[in-house]
């Protein structure tokens, strides 16, 4: 089973973990991304996330489908937020349930690493003295 979501509303960590729980799974691996207060020593005030929604959902679904083919996992949840997020807020939750832990760990890692490469979502860091689109320039 796969649950994909892109939302402006705060993500609910415990509801996400609960969704992947299942009797046939002996391990759940969860990745929670949080907004960090600094980048390269510079204070970050907040982050703004923008998505090309229909394509982002399609790419998120592709990653989940590929993951299901590569590893014996039962459930995959992939939720990402858009809009303005304060320090400590949660832009992304990935939860994977599998019968055994190796698959859950590997699959979870693959999902976040691939999301960062292929899903059309952009993050802008707002500093005290300016703002920058992350990864835009070499």
């Amino acid at each position: 089973m796969i649950d994909i979501k892109l939302t402006e509303e705060p993500l609910d960590i415990s509801a996400c973990v609960e969704w992947v729980m299942s009797p046939e799974c002996g391990g759940i691996d969860v990745f929670i991304g949080t907004v960090r207060n600094a980048t390269k020593g510079k204070t970050v005030l907040r982050l703004e996330f923008e998505a090309y929604e229909p394509m982002a959902l399609k790419e998120m679904q592709k990653i989940a489908d590929q993951t299901m083919q590569k590893w014996p996992v039962q459930k995959i949840l992939l939720h990402h937020r858009t809009g303005t997020l304060a320090i400590g807020e949660v832009p992304v939750i990935i939860a994977v349930a599998a019968a055994h832990r190796d698959a859950a760990f590997d699959a979870c890692r693959y999902i976040i690493d691939t999301l960062k490469q292929t899903v059309p979502i952009w993050k802008r860091e707002i500093f005290e003295d300016g703002e920058v689109w992350v990864a835009a320039h070499p």
Binding site: H80, I112, K116, V119, P120, I121
Partner: peptide, 29 residues
């Protein structure tokens, strides 16, 4: 360049009704 919500290749031909988008380096997560 994305065409109809898929990453496109250099030689792909664009049609009038295609949804075309410029995708700068992504930075989700």
């Amino acid at each position: 360049v994305a065409v109809n919500n898929e990453y496109a290749s250099a030689e792909d031909v664009l049609q009038l009704r295609d949804e075309i988008a410029i995708i700068p380096p992504v930075s989700g997560g």
